[in-house]
């Protein structure tokens, strides 16, 4: 295919985030900085994980069934690590929030509103999501701009680029909105919300294991989108409830 196809794949993966960025983030410099630093954090987590797993890669895939186990361990460890990082991110954010509030008092401006806090969480989540899409999908997209396309053996129904950008879109959604859920859960001390985020992340990661079996992507991708939709709906419900609460108060 050509440039059009490449741009199409890129937009498929990142288009929603792009519009979200333009609509909600780009006007507020602080949120842009949040996106950048969260992206950097995710990149560093990826580098650390890669450093740990580099010695074991590539897995010997000749007996094709035996690749399941190492991949599931890999995904498990990565998800655990990244969820730990989310807690770290929350700690940093908490400190930052105090500083911001102190600063707002000093310049006699209102403190952070509830929507502000949610926007910061959204920006942080979007940093994670965008980093995911960029490193797992966009950086492999270079050949798609050239005159050919590429199919993987296990998923011969669609071009590889299409599959990977679709998966990336699902993960962008999950990452972006699960950060909002998680921050809200931490702030409220809501156990369910705190737990739901790692579970969703882990399940989504494990669902990609389905792609290992031949033709699995036909089943795996819809399931993944179910998870993304679930995250989206849960986040929407939660935000709605909190906003309604704060208005009633």
């Amino acid at each position: 295919m050509t440039v059009a196809a490449g741009i199409g794949y890129a937009l498929l993966a990142l288009g929603p985030s792009l519009s979200l960025f333009v609509a909600a983030i780009s006007q507020k410099p602080f949120l842009i900085l949040t996106v950048l630093s969260s992206t950097l954090l995710w990149l560093m987590s990826l580098i650390v994980l890669a450093g740990v797993w580099r010695a074991f890669l590539p897995f010997k895939t000749t007996p094709s069934s035996s690749a399941w186990l190492p991949y599931s361990i890999l995904i498990l460890s990565s998800v655990v690590f990244q969820e730990g990082l989310r807690v770290l991110f929350w700690r940093i954010y908490k400190k930052l929030e105090d500083i911001l509030d102190a600063f707002a008092d000093r310049v006699s401006k209102p403190r952070l509103f509830l929507t502000d806090k949610m926007q910061i969480a959204l920006a942080g989540g979007m940093g994670h999501g965008v980093a995911h899409a960029v490193f797992f999908c966009l950086s492999l997209l270079t050949p798609a701009f050239g005159p050919a396309t590429f199919y993987v053996e296990k998923c011969s129904q669609m071009p590889f680029f299409l599959v990977s950008s679709m998966i990336a879109l699902a993960f962008v959604t999950i990452h972006t909105f699960s950060m909002v859920i998680a921050f809200n859960g931490y702030a409220e001390g809501n156990r369910v919300d705190q737990l739901i985020v790692p579970v969703v992340h882990l399940v989504a990661g494990m669902l990609t294991l389905v792609n290992l079996s031949s033709g699995g992507c036909i089943i795996g991708i819809p399931l993944l989108y179910c998870m993304a939709l679930f995250t989206l709906l849960h986040c929407g419900k939660m935000v709605w409830k909190r906003l309604a609460d704060s208005q009633n108060r």
Binding site: L46, L49, A50, W53, R54, L57, P58, F59, A67, Y71, L74, I75, F135, F136, C137, S139, L140, V152, K154, C155, F160, V163, S164, I167, T208, L209, N211, L212, C217, G220
Partner: peptide
């Protein structure tokens, strides 16, 4: 790492 995992659609 990334190429290894994501070319297997992980």
């Amino acid at each position: 790492f990334v190429v290894g995992t994501s070319s297997n659609l992980m």
